[in-house]
């Protein structure tokens, strides 16, 4: 009975503490000045308290980002936990902002906080959504781009969780390649 009461009245701890960051593009400020830590949480209940309190991604203005990263990892390539890593990138067409963006972002958040990548969840650093006029982007960042088994497992599970058809191909890009790209496209290191 006591166990039941504890179960009923205790919050459900997550494996990790997570930090939500918000980026708002103000050209008069530096990139880092535009990045703000919103809050941290480490239970299922506190995740929902935050999620239901903040603006849906589809309602943000262009140039804004949400980033959700494990506590201690900053949402930038330069962080030591990110610099050898990369991202599974979902690029959306403009019209998908009104049909799929919020659902995809919520599924992404649930995947990372629920540690849904089996033995490879420790590879995950965080997730990012970029709201952009030319097309929104969602990504899961992982810590080691050379970890083929981990990266491809995460990609397969992620694609399935988003409900993408087998005809859709998603790509993984190393941050090092994104940082040094010459054109607008970064080559995919892996695809699923």
């Amino acid at each position: 009975r006591e166990e039941e009461a504890v179960e009923r009245y205790s919050k459900h701890p997550l494996q990790n503490r997570w930090a939500l960051w918000f980026f708002k593009n103000d050209k008069s400020k530096t990139w880092q000045e535009n990045l703000r830590l919103v809050t941290k949480f480490d239970t299922v209940e506190d995740f929902w308290a935050l999620y239901t309190h903040i603006q849906l991604a589809s309602k943000l203005t262009s140039g804004c980002d949400y980033s959700l990263f494990k506590d201690g990892i900053e949402p930038m390539w330069e962080d030591r936990r990110n610099k050898c890593g990369g991202r599974w990138l979902i690029t959306l067409a403009k019209q998908q902002r009104h049909t799929e963006l919020d659902r995809f972002w919520l599924e992404t958040l649930l995947c990372v906080i629920g540690e849904m990548f089996d033995g490879y969840s420790d590879e995950v650093c965080g997730a990012v959504i970029n709201i952009r006029a030319k097309g929104d982007k969602i990504a899961i960042w992982t810590q080691e781009a050379e970890n083929r088994d981990g990266v491809t497992h995460i990609g397969r599970v992620y694609k399935e969780r988003l409900g993408l058809s087998s005809k859709v191909v998603i790509g993984y890009q190393a941050h090092a390649d994104t940082a040094t790209k010459s054109g607008s496209l970064t080559k995919n290191k892996f695809v699923v």
Partner: peptide, 20 residues
């Protein structure tokens, strides 16, 4: 023990009133 939750479990808490 790893705290691993599937989406249905997590979604169950979406509209649950906060515990005090």
């Amino acid at each position: 023990e790893k705290k691993q939750y599937d989406r249905e479990f997590l979604l169950d808490f979406q509209f649950m009133p906060a515990c005090i």
